[in-house]
């Protein structure tokens, strides 16, 4: 919806700016014409009437110039009314509404396709923001060109005035928009990736023009402005792949039977339903002597889909703890 409002604002600025420019153009040319006409008349009269009838002519010229200005003013206002006619405004509204609905439709289509072709889910979803940007750019371009047919000068003037207006009034929005474009085309992450930004970890569910939405592990949607994202460090867990590595930590007493624990930890991972069996499972041991001596067992494995990351970690931890307990590993602490 924001895109829709933004487009409308942009097009209305175009309309007003075009009207002003045309009005100024026309006013300028009329004044120029009047001045030129006046100079020529005066020169001719000076040549013809050297006897000093200048005062009468000056008065006549003074009488014709305000009329010309009035006529020109009327003419320019008429042109401006043509430019910001209700028909054009209605066209802009309908076209923008149509494109907004189309983007909603394409977003739905991408979501449905992603559900049906899970293995290609991420490739499909990454097309979504690109399509939206392309649709809006084409719409704005077509509307400006067909409705206002701006000249080069007016286009430059329009850009200048728009930049000035946006620079003062909406610099944060502009920053976000440029941030959004950078994310879409530079692709530090894509829809479906698991990223950590500013302490918010979760799945990217939407990359918008202004901000990006992340679905965190506790199922909250966090909205982060794109300007903030481009200035932050981002860690990406799967970088466009469906699977991602999960590290499961187990804390055990230092004097454990390493061989027995390794077997249990390894089997806990390879028997998990969430495991990506095409990638290797690693079990590592680290001893810590900070506060209380303990052995940290790290089980590194890939989960079949990044969405099941926590499911996998929970499943492996639960199974390993149960088996370790049955094997009497925890009893060695006492």
């Amino acid at each position: 919806m924001f895109n829709y409002i933004l487009t409308l604002c942009f097009l209305l600025i175009c309309t007003q700016a075009s009207a002003q420019i045309d009005f100024l153009d026309s006013l300028g040319s009329q004044i120029e014409e009047a001045i030129t006409k006046d100079s020529i008349d005066r020169a001719e009269e000076a040549a013809e009437n050297a006897d000093g009838e200048q005062t009468e002519d000056e008065e006549a010229a003074a009488e014709t110039t305000p009329e010309a200005v009035r006529d020109n003013l009327t003419d320019a206002i008429g042109k401006a009314t043509d430019i910001i006619s209700p028909a054009k405004i209605l066209t802009i509204i309908i076209a923008s509404l149509f494109v907004w609905l189309t983007t909603k439709g394409t977003n739905w289509m991408y979501r449905s396709l992603a559900d049906s072709f899970n293995r290609r889910r991420l490739q499909i979803l990454r097309l979504q923001p690109i399509t939206n940007v392309i649709l809006w750019v084409i719409t704005i371009y077509v509307l400006v060109v067909t409705l206002f047919d701006p000249t080069r000068q007016s286009l430059l003037a329009l850009m200048g005035s728009s930049a000035l207006a946006l620079g003062f009034a909406a610099q944060d929005i502009v920053k976000n928009i440029f941030g959004g474009l950078l994310i879409i085309f530079d692709r530090p992450f894509q829809v479906g990736d698991r990223i950590n930004i500013g302490g918010n970890y979760g799945e990217v569910v939407r990359i918008g023009i202004r901000n990006t939405n992340i679905n965190t592990l506790d199922d909250s949607i966090v909205t982060i402005p794109n300007s903030k994202i481009i200035s932050e460090h981002i860690s990406n867990a799967n970088s466009g792949a469906l699977d991602c590595m999960v590290v499961v930590d187990l804390w055990l007493p230092v004097g454990i039977d390493v061989e027995k624990v390794r077997k249990i930890a390894f089997e806990a991972a390879i028997t998990s339903r969430y495991l990506n069996i095409d990638k290797a499972v690693t079990v590592l041991f680290f001893d810590h002597f900070d506060n209380q001596p303990a052995t940290n067992v790290k089980i590194k494995a890939y989960v079949l889909d990044a969405r099941y990351e926590k499911g996998f970690a929970g499943d492996v931890t639960e199974a390993a703890k149960k088996a370790l307990s049955e094997a009497g590993i925890y009893e060695t602490i006492q």
């Binding site: 072709f117 899970n118 293995r119 469906l242 990506n276 069996i277 095409d278 079949l304 889909d305």
Partner: peptide
Amino acid sequence: IHERLNRN
């Protein structure tokens, strides 16, 4: 299974 669980 192939499509949803990404098994080859």
